[in-house]
Design a protein around this nucleic acid. Sequence first.
DNA 1: CAAATTACAGATTTCAATATTTGTAATTCA
DNA 2: TGAATTACAAATATTGAAATCTGTAATTTG
Lengths: 193, 193
Amino acid sequence: MTTDDPRGRILDAAEALLRRHGPDKLAVVDVARALGMSHANVYRYFGSKTELFGELVARWLGRLEGPLAAIAAEPGPAPDRLKRWALTLHRQKREKVSVDPEMFAAFDKAAEMARPSVAGHLAHLHAQLTAILADGKAAGLWPGVTEHSALDVFTAISPFSHPALVLADGATDRSAQLARVIDLIDAGLRSST
Amino acid sequence: MTTDDPRGRILDAAEALLRRHGPDKLAVVDVARALGMSHANVYRYFGSKTELFGELVARWLGRLEGPLAAIAAEPGPAPDRLKRWALTLHRQKREKVSVDPEMFAAFDKAAEMARPSVAGHLAHLHAQLTAILADGKAAGLWPGVTEHSALDVFTAISPFSHPALVLADGATDRSAQLARVIDLIDAGLRSST
DNA sequence: CAAATTACAGATTTCAATATTTGTAATTCA
DNA sequence: TGAATTACAAATATTGAAATCTGTAATTTG
């Protein structure tokens, strides 16, 4: 049974075209043609090309968030979860590059015109990190946690997940280095002031 | 007295053109014309356009390194120097963006074709950071310092100096956040293992 | 003979005409 | 009347011919 939700069908077609032809050749006109409808009809469901791209990016980023949200919500010691959360985020991003670099570049480019989606994604990640840090503080393990900690920690490990930097490094595995950085941060959070 | 060193005069002319017209309009032909010589003569002193750009970038980056090297070589407590070193690096980069964004973009673009110069720059910064960390370890303040620490610390604070990220944030001052990240790292280095 | 020049082939860039795409409005369809 | 279409203006992208640039070699200058 093919879904009857027009927005979903349009997004699926757009994603398929993005995968096939890359971001430069993704036109609303082509999406419409692939679905056998006029391009004006697409504008009934999406106010603009930017909005369509935004939904596409949000959907893609949402898929990355699932496993991370699971780790953030788990019981268990916060330091362990922090490390697994960071390593998972790094691995997810790196996988996208090595498995399908063209696709990653496509979404990287697409994200340019979809700032709000990216901001939402970052807000989700920030919330997850805040939760983990709060758990560690509540358990008395991390007296150093403050209101700024989530932002600071996320910034410090961003070189391992930021698209521009992940793209630059190509497929090199930096998990070992990330693990060391997390250990350093963990140690820092264990001391007060 | 104008210098008689041809390489220096060529680099000066190239830098002036880069400032005036941006990186896309910087042609060897124009550099030669500005000096009243044939472009072929420029190739007597630089093997290629890439090499010329490389020297230009190296010179520019070298100017940033001076104040940093001074801080690294100072006597005084390592944690204090680490913080000032990191803040100075951040400020230097940010100044370039806010004072003259076009110029920064020019050198960012120029750096693309001058990878070796950038690598050399990073090697210098790495060496400075290594020295500061070694001092702190020798003083018994930072038992956590290992052979990897310089790289790890540099990576963690790279969001505050990497061109792509400094450029993205525009002129926003993130010194306060950087200071917190440094404090976190400092605390981490103070604990062993 | 060292320092520069002119001459030139191949690669790259520019530019303007042409075609496509975006987004809106007026119109048709069921 | 809701769902789509055709029609169209303005913005954007494509294209290919002409101009420019890079890098090398042969030649000139003092």
